[in-house]
Amino acid sequence: MPSVEGAAEPPTATGPLEPERTVARDGALSGWFNHETGELLPGYDASGDDVVLDVGCGDTPLSSFFANRAGSMIVADLLAENVEKAESRLRAVGARNVRAIVTDTDPLPLDSASVTRVVATEVLEHVPDPTRFMAELVRVGRPGARYLLSVPDASSEALQQTIAAPSYFEPPNHVRVFSREAFERLVVDAGLVIEHRKLYGFYWTMWWCFFWTCKQDLSPPWHPLLESWTRTWGLLLDTEQGGQIKAVLDNALPKSQLIVARKP
């Protein structure tokens, strides 16, 4: 995951503001991590027959949700320390079979048609050649394989460009910005069929804006401004119309655009 931006990790400070509860509720309202249905996101699940590949996994793989559901897990990242931590996290939450790979994905050291689920979230904006990267993801997928892909939304990136540290838009961080049309075209041109699109993350768009203003590291204790924003967002979500307002704001200024797709 990005060295400046981090892995879209929630604030983990503890205390009366309950930031973890707010982040969890925000995600749940968008359909993330549904334990009742077994879906990581609506329309995206895995079972014991699946081989899940998480590319650009960072040290906290999103695919850990499938750890005790999927038949086997593969985590891949450019940084060895991320791969080591990701593997440890997966084993700690009950993954049955884990393979960890340090790779730049050019090419992926996997056989063609060897995986059934591919997770690549907030990765494409970092890679030098997105077309080649997508070709590798498609190559390793079996017919019928399903893909969960995301990139930062162009609207949020435009906002970040006015206030972020210069390194945020320099290698190895965000080297390109995808419009929604360009992201969709990249996925379709790679040979995938788009099943579902989603915009998500107004809370995170604003969190990062405040983060740059605070000029602090990506670790607690968090600046009072960040704590105050998280508390405000939590109070909003707890209101009767909180979920409705969140949905409107997520579509107006999302942090990320997501696509669920299938290999024919």
Rank of each mutant, 00 (worst) to 15 (best):
A86V: 10
A86C: 11
R89Q: 13
L90S: 04
L90P: 00
R91D: 12
R91Y: 05
V93M: 12
A95T: 06
R96T: 07
R96N: 12
R96Q: 08
R99Y: 11
I101N: 11
T103V: 11
D104M: 14
D104Y: 14
T105D: 03
T105M: 03
T105K: 01
D106S: 07
D106Y: 03
D106Q: 11
P107C: 15
L108P: 01
L108E: 01
L110H: 10
S112C: 11
S112Y: 15
V115H: 01
V115N: 01
T116A: 06
R117M: 03
A120C: 12
E122P: 04
E122T: 03
V123A: 00
E125Q: 11
V127R: 03
V127C: 14
D129Y: 11
P130Y: 02
T131S: 15
M134A: 15
E136P: 05
L137S: 15
L137I: 07
V138T: 14
V138L: 08
R139P: 05
V140F: 13
V140L: 12
R142H: 09
R142N: 08
R146Y: 03
Y147G: 14
L149N: 00
L149G: 01
D153Y: 04
D153N: 12
S155N: 04
E157R: 09
A158Q: 09
L159G: 12
L159E: 00
Q161V: 09
T162K: 04
T162Y: 07
T162E: 01
I163H: 10
I163K: 07
A164V: 02
A164L: 05
P166Y: 08
P166G: 13
P166E: 02
S167N: 04
S167V: 05
S167C: 12
Y168F: 04
Y168H: 10
F169V: 04
F169L: 03
P171Y: 09
P172A: 02
N173W: 10
H174E: 06
V177P: 11
V177Y: 00
V177W: 14
S179T: 12
R180N: 15
E181K: 07
E181G: 04
E181P: 11
E181T: 08
A182C: 05
F183H: 11
F183D: 01
E184I: 15
R185T: 14
R185I: 07
V188K: 13
V188P: 14
D189P: 06
D189M: 15
A190Q: 06
G191V: 05
L192V: 08
L192T: 08
V193G: 04
I194S: 03
I194V: 08
I194D: 00
E195P: 04
E195I: 08
H196R: 02
H196F: 10
R197Y: 05
K198L: 14
K198Y: 08
K198R: 14
L199N: 02
L199T: 06
Y200L: 03
F202W: 05
F202T: 08
Y203F: 08
Y203R: 15
W204V: 13
W207I: 02
W207N: 06
W208C: 03
W208M: 09
W208Y: 14
F210S: 12
W212P: 03
W212V: 05
T213Q: 12
T213Y: 13
K215E: 10
Q216I: 13
Q216L: 02
D217H: 14
D217N: 13
L218K: 13
L218N: 13
P220Q: 06
P220E: 01
P221Q: 10
P221W: 15
W222M: 07
W222A: 00
W222Y: 10
H223C: 09
